[in-house]
Write a protein that binds this DNA or RNA. Sequence first.
DNA 1: TAGATTGTTAATCGATTAACAATC
DNA 2: TAGATTGTTAATCGATTAACAATC
Lengths: 210, 210
Amino acid sequence: MKTQRVPEATINRLSVYSRFLERLDEKGIITVSSNEIAEGVGVSPPQVRKDLAYFGEFGTRGVGYNVQDLMRYTLKILGLNVPWPLLLVGAGNLGYALSTYRGFNSRGFSVVGVFDNDLNKIGRKVGDLDVYPPEKMPDIINKHKVRIGIIAVPPKSAQDVADLMVKNRLHAILNFAPVSLNVPEHIVYRNVDLSVNLEILTFNLGIRDS
Amino acid sequence: MKTQRVPEATINRLSVYSRFLERLDEKGIITVSSNEIAEGVGVSPPQVRKDLAYFGEFGTRGVGYNVQDLMRYTLKILGLNVPWPLLLVGAGNLGYALSTYRGFNSRGFSVVGVFDNDLNKIGRKVGDLDVYPPEKMPDIINKHKVRIGIIAVPPKSAQDVADLMVKNRLHAILNFAPVSLNVPEHIVYRNVDLSVNLEILTFNLGIRDS
DNA sequence: TAGATTGTTAATCGATTAACAATC
DNA sequence: TAGATTGTTAATCGATTAACAATC
């Protein structure tokens, strides 16, 4: 693997490629060209080759790419060659939905601990997981070697949860609360604002209308 | 409003600016400079000015921007000066979470109809909404003038749901199923793959580790 | 007027794509 | 070898930023 600044869009597309390759593999297809991948996922063929070239030479000139091999390479690049235990804070509706989300499980992610500070929720079940109080966090993190925490609490408590995750030495945080948080430089952080996605739609509808 | 190709990143940032301005307004702050906005949301000051310049001249040289005015302008640009009724298909966990998601309601979005073809779910309640069978879609769409549909069903049924939404003349679709869908050119379409967000984290953790 | 901050142009930076040599 | 397709370089395109004239 070369070390060169990889555009985030490339990572995004690698994720899409890997899913497409999984589908091809299920269909028993052995070889695929950059043209076919490009066609299948809606990008240009040089884009596909360039994206892969950041990480190595995976194809055979004149032939194409071996589907299974390339699938494994792309998953490896994304870090998906190993399982990822997740810690989830917030046992509300969103937390419940995320803990059972198919798109996570099919990629090797699994929620191993659900936390909430609401006494009414602690001790209850979310799927087949118990809801724990925040004090239990170190135990679960150690037991499952958790590195990633997901925040699915209301906006006001989100910063506190992030602080707690940092204190408990998690390495990465995915925040679903519609608020931006302050985390130290060394934490890999990402905010998923579901509403922004809708707002991009309403903006585009506005453009179409005028 | 000028017509010029606006980068999607700009729309994204406008959404962030508008939230920041709401916070300033709540605090009773009257005037704000591009420097303060930039500082507050983590972008460069010329970026803020450039983003706004796509849509008009909203500030006063030597002074800055009026917080309330700019807040209203940005919301208007995003199409958020009017309420947006939403139609949601999929009465599972994710559907339930989305129908009560705070981040939606605070921006003028409200789910007005929940649909599912699972006979066990039809007739039940999701929050204070009834779950309807797909046949009821035209009624709800007409009654509430719905333009946007949200897909929160498992991957296999997602394409069918999209087709049904297109047939029922919705204008925009937000897809939460982890699968890419085919929709006609005239539909404003967007896929939210929650898993990709986690994969960008795992990629970055991999980079840090090496 | 002096100081401040916008709006905009020009320069820079980075990502995508076209083109083609390498090579199976 | 002829045909095909990769990997990579150079050209293009687009977005961000630096700089500054306009102007409150």
